[in-house]
Design a protein around this nucleic acid. Structure first.
Lengths: 339, 339
DNA sequence: TAAAAAAATGTTACCGATAACATCAAAGTA
DNA sequence: TACTTTGATGTTATCGGTAACATTTTTTTA
């Protein structure tokens, strides 16, 4: 690999002069600059970022850690984060924790040892706490996305999840549904807890009793084994007329299971969910959902992160909490029940 | 940040001894090892990967560069690459070029200056050639995915695209279609060229004439402006009875456009495409497609990359070319025409 | 018990860059 | 002309690790 020393030797100057040309610092005569520049081009010089970060103690590298790279919510979010990072001259790398606390830990280790300047992270669950503590301890700024972790203060971008759940249930009630079920993420995830809260509140406001048998808590990630959904569907008595799914993955699993049983949505059972299904939603606007501003999650989160990084040393600002609105998008997956 | 020198001082040994404990190299007494280990735990030591890579001249870092992070084909591929990388003890970072040659170049620069050990890359187009030359010049092994770049020999994992296109057209012909249109990616992308070839061959075999007006070459990425699709649809005379879309993004765009015009698929026009639409194809198996083994693209490509990296120095092996099969998945988006 | 071998640990130099300071020449000023 | 200032460049130390070699301690063997 070509180094500044190779350039320096070839151009007949010192390494420091080469460094000055590269970074456009200090004073250099035009003649020297031109000569150095020419040699760099000739030898295809590429700066070694690691050597540079080592001495500068900053990498201009940011990480985005998401929990499911195949989930359109997160990939759209990634686009937003990318755009915001680029605008401020940072490079962005992605990691995918797959909803696994262990994988998340591995990525955090990578991030720490890569000496990233900051991290945008959608935590796997409450058990991410030690990972976040590790980041905090090592003084790596981070911003949480979509989920909070109790016990860890930080900047965070959230969706108005509780309100979203309420809107979904209200919508169902307004169409005559009275037996409404919820398949939710695990209660170790803050957003799942909020969905349940919103769900219960809306029931109460609608004068409907909360019945535990109508609630299933299941992992957010796609699994091959759908038997818990199966048995849950069997167990409810009387059967619900509508199911609220805690996220898009669960919505898909539920609909798949229903289809496998020969049940049609919404004719036999209504289904609503959180977050869009990506391009698919566009060709066949089928599923009624709470749409979240995925791109904004990434964009705003990244802005907040960069502000934190650049204010470093300044008096610490209080944590910021951005809550993005949740919009009900009515499509065709809910039946209107006869009164 | 805590360094090995801090550990060394605290533990009353030399930095080298700490290094030996970390890497489990050389000979160390159990007592010393335990002591050093304890101090590392106490101080929450995290190795500085950059310092280490600087001296070792290798980073154990790999990159995956894809062209569209919101495309399920690539995210599924990413999963495969991730799994294969982890199995061999490499860390994997993602980059997203967004089908843009410029963004791709920026990522290549990042990759070069980060001194990654290797790159898995889905090139944006033939104009990626200089970027690949740059990698080659700097001796960074890479494997191409899904697309080849003329003039650049390398390992590559491809889909059997031409055969795929043929199968789609055959399928349409067998259902009575005679006027078949193709909306394809730009001809600067190898896979788009192959699709066109397969398309033409299948027409010929089916005794159908190739008519240029039925072919539109458009960018693969989603755009807000659909006017070229609009005018193309208007221009064809007589109108086709079926449209082959070159990838999933284009399929979605076409269907969206048709819906906007009040046309139904497949009742008014049949549409087929390449690559699935992610998990969501499952809730409503609608679009007939050529399904590619996205996960395998990533997994096999990563394996080949790692083999290249680790054989370095050994006699160079000839380039390998893996072609993965393309399977026709028949669903509901094609109408059977009366003879 | 002295010499040789093995085990445990330390010292030095270097990876590729930059900050801080040092030097030297040309230009400006008294 | 001597003296300061400014501009252009070089030297040295350092970031956090590890390889290669050096040294010291312990164990084995003749």
């Amino acid at each position: 690999m070509v180094t500044i020393y190779d350039i320096a030797a070839q151009a007949g100057v010192s390494a420091m002069t080469v460094s000055r040309v590269i970074n456009n610092t200090g004073k250099i005569s035009d003649k020297t600059r031109a000569k150095v520049q020419r040699v760099m081009d000739e030898l295809n010089y590429v700066p070694n970022h690691m050597a540079r970060s080592l001495v500068l103690q900053q990498s201009k590298l940011l990480f985005l850690l998401i929990t499911d790279i195949t989930n359109p919510f997160y990939t759209t979010l990634a686009r937003g984060a990318e755009d915001a990072a680029k605008k401020s001259g940072y490079r962005l790398l992605f990691g995918n924790s797959d909803e696994s606390s262990q994988k998340e830990k591995d990525y955090i280790d990578t991030i720490l040892s890569t000496r990233a300047d900051g991290v945008l992270i959608a935590p796997a669950s409450d058990s991410s706490l030690p990972h976040l503590e590790s980041l905090r301890r090592h003084n790596v700024p981070f911003v949480l996305l979509d989920r909070e972790v109790p016990g860890m203060g930080s900047d965070v971008v959230l969706g108005d999840t509780k309100e979203g759940a309420r809107k979904l249930v209200d919508h169902l009630i307004s169409l005559g549904h009275r037996r409404i079920a919820l398949i939710n993420g695990l209660p170790t995830i803050s957003s799942a807890r909020l969905r349940l809260e919103g769900f219960r509140e809306a029931l109460k406001l609608g004068d409907l009793a909360y019945d535990e048998q109508y609630v299933l808590e299941s992992a957010f990630e796609p699994k091959s084994d759908l038997s818990d959904i199966e048995s849950w569907l069997d167990s409810m008595d009387p059967a619900p007329t509508a199911i609220v799914a805690g996220n898009n993955v669960l919505a898909v699993e539920v609909i798949r299971t229903l289809h496998a049983r020969g049940l049609r949505v919404p004719d036999d059972l209504s289904v609503v969910g959180f977050d869009d299904l990506g391009p698919y939603s566009e060709i066949d606007p089928f599923l009624t959902v709470i749409a979240q501003q995925a791109y904004q999650f990434g964009y705003l989160g990244m802005q907040m992160l960069i502000e934190r990084i650049e204010e470093r040393g300044a008096a610490a600002q209080p944590w910021r909490r951005v809550v993005l609105p949740a919009e009900l998008v009515v499509r065709r997956s809910v039946a209107k029940l006869p009164e």
